[in-house]
């Protein structure tokens, strides 16, 4: 079966996909990362989390960052958001160097980080209020964003009354209410169950379609990365450095049926091979298994 399935090369793009990438490349650069290195001083010496990472993201592009655990994905997101200073190299948003966290770069965390003492509406109002907006305008604005993520009925609920998926929607609305130019999402759906995660992915694409925003999305889920993004940045671990920047040949708009299309499977398989090189992990022999007699039906 596996041998019978002939996948095309992941580099093969249909004319419309190719022309779309051509147009994307013409767009202004929203985020430019050049020579980014991040090291940490620990008791065991210096650990290099990121080494000479360079890439750029164009306006309204959806880019995913993927890599095995420990490759510095989260560190990258934190440096981009300005929560950590890079050891060397620089990050520019529309040409402006990043020196610290700021409202021009939104961030959605895996752990939701909603303010538990505020209702959904108050959470979404937070950014506009910090920017000095009046309570009334912030409230009106918050309502729109809450409607966009489909939580109007819950605008007066407290975060602890919501499910994980709803919480993450509030977090997205809260980040968007600030009208950032780039949105960083650090494994936002990592804590959700498979079903909810699937819904949230489609929902996120819907939002992206309707909002002027450039998204950098950190994930360790292959399907998620391929399904969501225009381009995928694959990182190598120890130290984290760019392995490959892949243009996803799957046409837009995306829908769940595409998961089984050859172009989807080709790019997915390619990334899988990059992250889990074949013949590395499957040869570990577990001595306990030998205690069990061979069963021809269980292979």
């Amino acid at each position: 079966m596996a041998a019978a399935l002939q996948l095309p090369s992941y580099l093969e793009q249909s004319p419309e996909v190719a022309s779309r990438f051509e147009r994307l490349r013409q767009r202004p650069v929203a985020l430019e990362v050049s020579g980014l290195t991040k090291t940490f001083e620990t008791t065991r010496g210096t650990v290099t989390a990121l080494s000479e990472v360079s890439f750029s993201v164009h306006k309204r592009e959806f880019m995913c960052v993927i890599g095995p655990s420990g490759c510095g994905k989260s560190t990258l997101a934190r440096v981009l958001a300005g929560l950590e200073a890079p050891t060397s190299g620089d990050v520019r948003v529309y040409g402006q160097p990043v020196s610290g966290p700021g409202p021009d770069r939104g961030m959605v965390f895996q752990s939701y980080t909603l303010f538990p003492w505020q209702t959904v509406k108050q959470n979404v109002m937070f950014g506009p209020l910090m920017a000095g907006g009046s309570r009334n305008s912030a409230e009106a604005e918050a309502r729109q964003w809450i409607e966009l993520v489909g939580l109007t009925k819950f605008e007066n609920a407290y975060p602890q009354q919501l499910s994980g998926g709803m919480k993450q929607r509030v977090a997205i609305a809260r980040a968007l209410a600030n009208q950032p130019r780039v949105l960083f999402m650090d494994e936002p759906f990592g804590a959700l169950d498979a079903q909810t995660r699937c819904q949230m992915q489609s929902h996120l694409l819907d939002i992206w379609k309707n909002v002027d925003i450039t998204i950098v999305f950190i994930t360790h889920d292959l399907d998620e990365a391929v399904f969501l993004s225009d381009r995928i940045l694959v990182l190598d671990p120890h130290p984290g450095r760019v392995r490959e920047m892949i243009e996803v040949p799957v046409p837009r708009p995306r829908h769940n049926d595409q998961l089984f299309e050859p172009s989807f499977m080709a790019v997915r398989k390619h990334i899988d091979n990059l992250i889990h090189p074949p013949g590395q992990e499957h040869h570990k022999e577990n001595p306990v298994l030998r205690l069990v007699a061979r069963d021809p039906d269980v292979v």
Partner: peptide, 27 residues
Amino acid sequence: LDPSLLEAAQTLGASPKQMLTRVVIPG
């Protein structure tokens, strides 16, 4: 207090003073 709440507030544009009065104290 969960430090990630402070980080979230920072990415939402809260100043240090606002972080203290709007996040730390109510939190």
